[in-house]
Each structure stands twice: as structure tokens, then as C-alpha cells.
Amino acid sequence: MNINARIWILSALALTGCPAKSDDSGPPPADVCSEGTVALSDANNYAFQGSLDVPSITTVSGADVQVCWDELTTDIQCQPVDPAADIDNVGLIRFANLSQDEVKEGLSKNNLNQSEMSGYVEARNDAGGTCTTLSAMSFFGTPIDLSQEYTDGGGTYMLLLTTGTELGKGARMLTFLAPSTASDVTRADVGAGCGVLDFTVDLHSLTSLPVCSDAPWTVDWSALTVDGEGNAVNALKVDSVMLGYYEGRGVSDIEGDFLDLEQSATALYTVDVAGGTTADLSTATNGADAFTGFTGDGLWLLALRCSSCYNPAPIFLTVLAPTAPTGD
């Protein structure tokens, strides 16, 4: 499960007590079952406010540092981590002109450019260990001269520990390293990730989204302008649509099962999106069976995800209001 899947769970967990504003949406449009298009708008979107309390470890400057993660037993979304088995790659990113706070803000807003990164090296964990060293890291075959490149005042350094080796995906933990001439610390212990991500989610203020209980359903997010955090959205970066159903449960019930939302779902369907701004929910599957319709009295949620975005929060998350077609 990638970071976006996990944060989707977290986001949905924040459905604290307050029901979605389905009553405010009024009766569904008369044509909700005739057009087949499920048009998403900003009014349907949740509100997400998050911050990353990324720990910072002060170390020696200009010299090698051993990085260990045997204490990394939970990730930033409080999911369990097997330090040896789950961490496949340890990367060190340097931002020459950004402070730690600016890096955190940029990650949250998903608006960092590659040019702001002034260095990246990595070490693969093919042997399943729990320690590496900065001197073991390289990129494109090029190692770094630690005496020159890892220095007090040289920028902001951030460790990125991931499951998988695809750059920008599968992040399990972030930790700043702060080289200091006043430090003689040569070992950095990356701690547990639970607690790093602090956020609030508001689903009660959104306008729930009417959908016809029966096919066809073409979800169209071309009209979205902002994501859940109010940042300008790049709708073309959506790479999956998720549908979650919770039998006999409401938003308040889900609050207590926040971390297990995916596991506790009665049904969870996903559509992979290769590009564009539409998806056909008829092609959603739970891994075995196709999605056939909105049934039951429980809660339906729909999320748009972007696995290549550094902000793991869903771009869009809403409560659905299924409506049976009128017989005529």
C-alpha cells in the first residue's frame, strides 16, 4: 500500500462526528440518473489542514554519519513498519536555499520544484539491514564529498525512507539531518513515524455529491480548481479514484476506526487513471469483483488520489449521496 492509500485512510478517519452536509445539498438534480456524469466541484470537496512535524537530528558536519532506522516501527501515517523488510531505499535530499519550515510547507502544498533540490543521493537496502551511512549513498554512480557537500550552513538535509525505490513514492518516514560544527554526533537514529503528520479534516462542511445508484457513472473532475487544502489543483495528476463503502455506519462511526478505515470497509473499489480528468466507475474493482452499483444504507466515500504528489492527502474526498433512478 503506497503512501497515498494510507493517507486516504487517515483522511477518512477524520470524519469526526459531524455528518456531511447532505441535507444542505437539497434534492438531487432531476437528471442525476439520466446523464451518467458525476461532475465533481470544489463545493463537494473536503477540507484538509495538515502539517508535518518532521524531526531533526543534529550531527557532525562535513563527515560521515551512520543512519539507522531500527526504531522505525510505524510510519508517518501510524501504519506498522518492519524496519528491515519494509525499507527499501534511504535517500538524502538537500535543499540549498530553503529552511526546514519552507521544505515542510512546500511538501504540504506540493509545489516544490526540482531546482530547489540541490542534491540527492540514496542507498538501497537490498540486504534488509537497518543501518547505512551517508558515504554509502550515491546517485547516477556519483557519490558525494561529505566534507564539501554535507556541511553546517550547506542547506537543509532531509532523509527520505521509502518502501520501493521509485523516487517520490512509498515514503514511510521523513527526518531532517542538521550538520553542525558544534556537534560530534556520528549516528542518526530515525524514530517512529506516528505523530509526524498532524492534521484536521473537515467533511461536514462539504456538499455531498448526488450519484445515481445505477450505472453509468463517469466521474469528471475537470472543474476542480483547488484540492482539499485549498491549493491550486493539477487535475491531470490524479492517478486513481477510490470508492469506499461502510455498511450500516455513518461518519461518526468511522471516526473511531480511522486507522483501519480501509480494512474495515465493507467494500473498497479502485479505478486506475492513466491520464485525463474522467474515470468510469463501472471499471472499478475490489481486486476481484467489479463495482456494480451503490447499494445499502451505509456511507459511500469517493476520493481522487495522486501517488506522485508529495502531499499524500487526497486531492479530493467527498461523501456520496446515492439516489435510485426514478421508474418511468
Binding site: 540549498a96 536555499n97 540541490s118 540527492y120 546517485f139 547516477f140 556519483t142 558525494i144
Partner: peptide
């Protein structure tokens, strides 16, 4: 020299 500075460590 670009402003802000960029370090291109490869290519």
C-alpha cells in the same frame, strides 16, 4: 549563474 543557485550534481 542561475538565481537562485542550482547544484547539478549529474548531467
Amino acid at each position: 549563474y542561475p538565481d537562485p543557485s542550482i547544484f547539478t550534481f549529474v548531467l
